[in-house]
Design a protein around this nucleic acid. Structure first.
Length: 180
DNA sequence: CCCGAGATTGACT
DNA sequence: GTCAATCTCGGGA
């Protein structure tokens, strides 16, 4: 990926990421799939962690574009974001991936969940890919993650975000639908 | 200092 | 469909 790719505003990058391949290189293995659901957050967004400024928890959101931001949700799950914009608190949350590479490995990571539930939520994506919370605040180029373009034709749907109670009128949740 | 809510998931009714 | 699990931050006392 060229450097400017991650400098885009969150809603733009969120759409760009749909249909792309997200691959993780583990010990002599790799796994990953096609990104099919994303969500955009900015510092002007009351629902964003960056809304009230930088803290120890969200400092990665104010790092260089392309940095990974990992946060713990409800004290239990981890969610993966890609920082974007210009060190101004923007990021894109990876909400769902369609497993295509190393499916068996991901299924084991997810405790043998059925195929359609392996990576169908932000916390599940993180667990299925076998990621470690330590990649928080690490640039994606220095992480086990890799983004690749794919030629798969998709249609993008913009919908209201879910799981939040603020700014629900903004259509910043994006879902990819495969077209023929 | 204490309390409540949250970018969620999975087990159970 | 309902609900508990469990950590961080923000707001109020």
């Amino acid at each position: 990926m060229n450097k400017n790719f991650y400098s885009q505003p969150a809603p733009e990058l969120a759409k760009q990421l749909l249909g792309m391949m997200l691959v993780v290189h583990n010990e002599a293995q790799q796994c990953g799939g096609i990104i099919i659901e994303t969500e955009a957050y900015t510092a002007l967004d009351p629902a964003s962690h960056s809304y009230r400024g930088e803290t120890a928890r969200n400092s990665a959101m104010f790092s260089a574009p392309g940095t990974l931001y990992v946060y713990r949700s409800y004290g239990i799950h981890y969610c993966l974001n890609i920082v974007c914009g210009n060190q101004d608190g923007q990021a894109v949350l990876i909400r769902a991936v369609l497993p295509t590479i190393g499916v068996e490995l991901m299924q084991r990571n997810r405790n043998s969940a059925p195929h359609h539930r392996i990576a169908n939520g932000p916390g599940n994506v993180f667990q299925a890919l076998g990621l470690h919370p330590d990649i928080n605040n690490i640039h994606i180029a220095k992480s086990p993650l890799q983004l690749k373009a794919s030629k798969i034709p998709i249609q993008i749907h913009a919908t209201p975000r879910i799981g939040i109670s603020k700014a629900t009128d903004v259509l910043w949740r994006y879902i990819a639908e495969f077209v023929e």
